[in-house]
Design a protein around this nucleic acid. Sequence first.
RNA 1: GCCGAAGUGGUGGAAUUGGUAGACACGCACGCUUGAGGGGCGUGUGGGGCGACCCGUGGGAGUUCAAAUCUCCCCUUCGGCACCA
Length: 869
Amino acid sequence: MEERYNPGAVEPKWQEYWNKNKLFKVSEDRLKEKYYLLEMFPYPSGKIHIGHVRNYTIGDVVVRYKRMKGFNVIHPMGWDAFGMPAENAAIDNNTHPAAWTYENINAMRVQLKKMGFSYDWDREIATCRPEYYRWEQWLFLQMLEKGMAYRKESFVNWCEKCQTVLANEQVEQDKCWRCSQVVQQKKLWQWFFKITDYAEDLLVHCDQLPGWPDKVTVMQKNWIGKSIGSELKFKIEGRDEDLTVFTTRPDTVFGATFMCLAPEHPLVETLSRGTDQEAVVDAFVQKVSSQERSADGVEKYEKEGVFIGAHCINPASGEKIPIYTANFVLMGYGTGAIMSVPAGDQRDFDFARKYDLEIRVVVQPKGERFDSSTMTEAYTGSGVMVNSGQFDELDSKEAMEVMTDWLEEKGRGKKAISYRLRDWGISRQRYWGTPIPVIHCPSCGVVPVPESQLPIRLPEDANLLAKGGSPLPALDYFSKVTCPACGREDAKRDTDTMDTFVESSWYYLRYCSPRYDKGMFDPAAVKYWAPVDQYIGGVEHAVLHLLYSRYFMRVLNTLGLIDFKEPFTRLLTQGMVCKETMTCPEHGFLFPEEAKKQDDETLACSRCGSEVEVGRVIKMSKSKKNVVDPNELLERYGADVTRLFCLFAAPPERDLEWNEDGVEGSNRFVNRVWRLAIECMDKMDIIAIEPYKGAASDLNAQPAKDLYIKANQTIQKVTDDIDKSFHFNTAISAIMELVNTMYTVDIDKADAQMKSVLLFCLENILLLLSPIIPHFCEELYEKMGNENSILEHGWPDYREDSLKTDEVLVVVQVNGKLRAKFSVSCEMDEAGIKETAMADEHVKKYLQEKPVKKIIVIRKKQTLVNIVV
RNA sequence: GCCGAAGUGGUGGAAUUGGUAGACACGCACGCUUGAGGGGCGUGUGGGGCGACCCGUGGGAGUUCAAAUCUCCCCUUCGGCACCA
């Protein structure tokens, strides 16, 4: 028999076996309980990296465990195949995004198969295939019809050189990530999904996702950003029009001494026109439009503004107050206008001081008196009302409600709720994405593409090299169309494509019936499989992908296509795999092999010799050159050791600083089990011996009893760790302990009972390890004379009556400090334990003559005596 | 600034319903095995002290017979949001 586990021979053998026998293929089966486990599908970048390996290994262990538990398990895999990297790679390598993408998919599929992941490959999908995206186009048309999708003009990040819109993530310090051109804000007509219609529902259900990590639901709540307050109407002087503001502090309305509008607010232009402020306002708006409005713009630009030449009337005090436009007011939040209460808001306070505007104290803490002329900062807390007419002396918290009611009676306000969440802009001026199925007709306007014309295929002969940006508008045969409504021949197809997050918002439903051609999915299949029971992926999608998916399920629910709203019952956010970066002052980021050891402390760049700076430990990223390619590990140790190592290194939710030092230990363990199994087979007639099945109490010798109990405890511990907490690292260490215990048994001297216990241990070790290192376990299981795959064996049970030893360790403390330990029969009562503890030589030494005040005996997980003197 | 998570040996990490701190590994040291070993086996390994013992879970207080675990304050790191009215 082989001395060592040989992954090079064993692993392909079993992968072929699983594949040939279609062991992971599933279909609906009413008689079995379903279990849908999904890992976030990868972008086909070309190679899997160690983060993927970790993610998919975690999922694969759970899936294999659930199968053994008897569930009908669906575990699909596919490709999030649209996106910008494919276009960039196509330009760089003079190829086509489709060719590049499919090549990568093929390469990555091979890698995943080599890892032994148990996917039902018959369900594989790629989002760039027309059979997939036609249903996305179909859904878009439904949403358009129901008013869930709409078009509006809005600002986007625009790179003039690349001729395209950039996502926020693609803007680095105001510059385009590809060409370093300064990014501009450009106003464009874009398609939006009305996700804000579901803001409240998405928010409320955050608290009804017990299977999700709190941090994710908290992030979603913050993202949705609900504020409760009031909408107040300020009459514009000299006009029959109101200026509406949103405020969370209606109690401070008497202190509103001026108004501020966002520079983009339509009233800025309207109200300033014809006044002597017109030129000043125009110049200011112009200037602000070139300022960066988000991210660190806050620090960069001082708060400033200009008077727009108009006034409005404070609905509470009746006073005339000036209207300003200011760079810190956001058009995208609330109404794009605020009432400024300098005494109660720091920004307003700064602004008032700068432009010498009135500061009027309206709320002050009980017993304190503020003087507006000497105040150095705003008071934002609650307190007692002043300078607020009939509301003086009222508690400011009560005043919120009372004053809103008062203003409502006067027709000047109402309670209101504002959300931070904005509608989802999905238009991308990119080529490699799903075409938006609408036509623009000079007579009819926006005309939906008739369903019969779907899919609108992405042209395959587009030349991306011609110029930056999307080639679609220039492709006449694609963009020039006849209007489906009126037949005009000069209509134009919408040449934008959808955000790739649209594809990933519903792909998990497609897996249920991936070849279905009568709709997005077969309703019966979705009814059986959906929702996803366990979803696994990186926390970087906590808001975007996970929120969009929740939104999409609500849309489908509203359209009557599904009967649930939440796509993922349980969510595991696995930690990132991180590594330090290396940078050379000359050459930027370096691969580890480009940095040579200079002396004990420092590294030098292999090209220029400059000292290499070892940077922070951060998430692996291709561009930072700190990614680890699992291929090397795979070739050296095989899939099973790689899997084992990833799981043993840390619990799944924890970030992991990559370090291969421990991999030898995993390899050692695998071979330790191998040798143990071989030794048992050599020295025992394992065909003749039956694994022990009885109770521990029926065993004669103590060592066999102890080992048997240990094995039962291990089964219990591993089951709990996999099932309840996904803590595979502790499950593995429990198995290691059992293996270590087995090594203490001398098989040559073992009696028949001990041999039968040993066989029980060995068999269960293989079963417990089989989700983790499946090839290895299949091989040994076969060697032990089994004809079926280990996959067909059920998950092992432990005996409740064989979890406890008859002796129990007693830990004795004196005044809370550990002083003695001894074992007693677990039959012994409390009095007996006390007595034995008091009689212990070691304990006596500490008691001496001191009077004993109290003795506490605990008999729970441990047996403990604490003697207080 | 706001929200959230986490701080335990030389390292990854155990122990979180308060109850033996450091399981299981890595590394290191010594020994055995072997012709040899990058293999295997064994012993040791938180710090201090010759020792009995003392000290130890980011720091400081507190609750308790008993605190890594609970409470309060502070520090550090990481993540998210960020002029949100």
